[in-house]
Amino acid sequence: MPATSAPRVNSLALLILPSALLFALFFFLPIGLMAVMSVLTGNPVVMPNVGFTTKHYARMGNDSYYLEVIWTTIRIGLWTTLAALVIGYPLAHWMARIRSRTGHALLLMAVLAPMLTGIVVRTFAWMTLLSDKGVINQILTSFGLITKPLQLMYNETGIIIGLVHIYVPFMVLTLTGVIGRIDERLEQAAENLGASPWRAFMEVTLPLSLPGILAGSLLVFALAISAYVTPILLGGFQIMTLPILIYQQISANFNVGFAAALGMVLLAISLILVIAYNHMLGLVSGQRGLQ
């Protein structure tokens, strides 16, 4: 950039103004307010003398219950991400490499179709499958494989099953884009040099798709830890996660300050992951920037 010339505004840059305004008004402002609320003693709109406090954060740190909730939320997020990756990767690889246009269209439809139904409807559908008298337990009992029903719902397993079903498409679509851009001839070159197809995948395709794995995992994790409907319905209030706790603090306890502090924790977890993601991406593809 020449230092002498005054910054000239590209008229096209004005096109981002609406989205910039939208972001400022409905994204940064609310988050800023939430951050402020999390360190105030009360709501400044209805209470005259509010002061600065760290009691909300201290309450979380001092009570192991809240730490347990945070850890449960992260654990559900991690298992959901892992399961979505294991299920999504082969599907994404298939979609990225399939030759037939019809086949690709069918796969895409299969991946996207669940997204056309609302989350609530899909979660209720899972309840009819997973409950004690649900389809799965009935079938297993009638075949004599189990004597008493498996506990598939109102625990973390049920929540994870529901979340994986909802978020797998995000993983698949992210991975498909990245895998599709990997030149197939690289795999052929590896096989040509003596690598079995599995070895060629491990040596070439998998490392080159790492950016997609990271991006997809980040997306699914962030969505899973902030999910509300599925943990409530499939957890049946037996499992407490951060979003449920936040809702309770606002609707039942009217403790907006504490709810804001919990929200900040949720945001912090996601932010730390985004930073870690950028760092790892730099390590993975750092050399590429040098050319």
Binding site: D183, P207, L208, V284
Partner: peptide, 14 residues
């Protein structure tokens, strides 16, 4: 046990 030199070289970028 053959070796191929590809048109775009197909070197492993990573």
């Amino acid at each position: 046990d053959m070796a191929m030199v590809f048109q775009n070289y197909a070197l492993f970028p990573h």
